[in-house]
Amino acid sequence: MSDSADKRYNASQRKVYSRRSKTLLYFSGHWQFYLMLVPPIIYYAVFHYKPMTGLVIAFKDYNMFKGTWASPWSGLTTFRYIFKNPDFYRAIKNTLVLNVLNLILGFPMPILLALFLNELKTGVIKKITQTILYLPHFISWVIIGGMAYQIFSMTTGIVNNALNAVFGITVPFLTNPGWWVFTYFIISVWHSIGWSAIIYMSAITSIDQEIYEAAKVDGSTRFHTMFFITLPNIKNTIVIMLILQVGTMATIGFEQPLSLQNSAVMSTADVISTFVYRVGTQNAKYSVATGVGMFQSIINFILVVGTNTISNRLTGQGIW
């Protein structure tokens, strides 16, 4: 072996050795971190990834006694059934109607609230107002549903009693399909307006105070300051929140509609999640319910990834 080749051989050996010892050194310092991560990784495998493999039953004729894997394949029969089912389209339509309503009319509300709360300077009043406004976020949907049925009852509800006393009319707030959408929207706003305002208020506190002083010197009025100085300065937060909300267009949680709906209003109140629940657990059509859920999951995933990409392009910020 020539001298130079020998040197090269030694150098490469040293490199291999040192790389290996670096790895060893790294693990001797870090193995405890990996040990900590073992239970979480198992948790995600058992309770998140394993159910994803359960999606195959959408392509099978699921038989309770045979289990997921032994049930016979059925190809696209389930989806053919779903796409012929009028209740499926009704659930999609209802989900979209409620979400679009919430986006167009509901989205600006917490922003306005944050702007007005920002104008409240006194400590105690501001604090009490905030406490009252955040509270609904912590009340369960069962309780809200129960309260709603008491408050909006046609015969004993406080709202209808007041309407009756003043105008001599009663309104079927929760039993007429059209009115139900209205009531659902009002309750949604009441539930989330305060909590959603927090994020805008924290954005407002980070605005440079000098701008406000300059505005004051220039004789800007309060409303002018609110809408032409505060609002443009939280534009980025607004854009991100808007994009995030568009990403949830295909989803409505299960607990809110379930607590507020009743058999008289299913034509507008049955959303995808409650439809899946009914078909799956009450009618025991597991394959159909899984298929509908899968359809929703995929649409949802596309929307979230899509809106996040747009958000990153436009504002340089997103969820990841």
Binding site: I57, V276, G280, T290, Q296, V304
Partner: peptide
């Protein structure tokens, strides 16, 4: 984080 954006849904979760 993938599990935040995609899930098996209600019924596969129940069967699990």
């Amino acid at each position: 984080i993938f599990t935040m954006y995609f899930s098996g849904g209600m019924i596969p979760g129940y069967l699990n």
